[in-house]
Design a protein around this nucleic acid. Sequence first.
DNA 1: CATCAGGGCCCTG
DNA 2: CAGGGCCCTGAT
Length: 323
Amino acid sequence: MTKVISLNKVSTLILEPKSPYNFDANMHKPSHFPSSDNIWEKGFYWISMLWQNQILGLKIEDIGVVSKPKVKFHIYSKEKLSKDFIDGLTPELRWRFNFDQDISEFCSKYKESKVLGTAVKKWKGMKPIAANSLYETLIIYIVLQNATVRRSVQMLENLFNTYGNKIKFDGKTISMFWKPEDIVESNEEKLRELKVGYRAKMIMNLSQQFVNKEIDEFRLRKMSKERIKEKMLKLYGIGPSSLQYLIFEDFYILDDLVTIPPWETKIMSRLLFNKELVSFEKIMKFFKKFKGYEKLAFHYIWEDLFWKRKNEHIEWLEKEIRL
DNA sequence: CATCAGGGCCCTG
DNA sequence: CAGGGCCCTGAT
């Protein structure tokens, strides 16, 4: 059952991401649906993290600039953390917030581009970010399937409230993901009560696969994209559509634009060609120009649109987003 | 009221 | 390898 855990000890750690690094555009993706496990405010980000059975609350602070990035982690915990623990955590933080990927070539190459220039200048240093563990991300993709945004949010929050806990630190209270074991020890009927529908079986089987240690997230990160795809498709409940998001957002592969979901195709048709609907081949052809960075280029245009949506009402866009 | 599609996936024939 | 079924919800 859900309880609120206070985290009162704090350690700090300062890290320097590879330049360019856009703090706000990396910590916050406006196209994503909101989730109570994290909070973003300009220059700050709070997120829960389970690492080696330790419950952590991260407050991440921007103390640099895009061209000379520097980030301060305030790591909250129940008990004081050892130096060894922090040393072990550091590479994971660098991975999760994608500090080491170099996108400088992309940013300088396309800053004058007619179609991409505006977005590249505005969001220089924006990258894919996998702030959650692989297991947590896969759960998010499952609740995303075949549902409207509101329902996805409802499903995830129901799961948090039943299997996860809340953590309180730095004056914020946020949700915390559960461990795969917690689901496996439960049962499918209980999951169904959370209105996840047929996804109950997927959540159960997927959790079981993690408990069985059939997936080694750390080894996967070093594999080729073809190998990753092969492995991910073996996971119960993960198909081609989820895979497409995973490859970019969680494995940081920047060139793999092979399919575009129908709703995204509609939105891109409007943005790029000012038409209701063009064939997805036409959109693919458009992004071929950005060789090696096809998906990253897509990401710049996409997130730029959703950043705009935060400040202005875009009527045609609202119709395409199933809230 | 009923019917249907939705930011898919699995399984069957 | 195409197509039906699956949970729930809000739109029509």
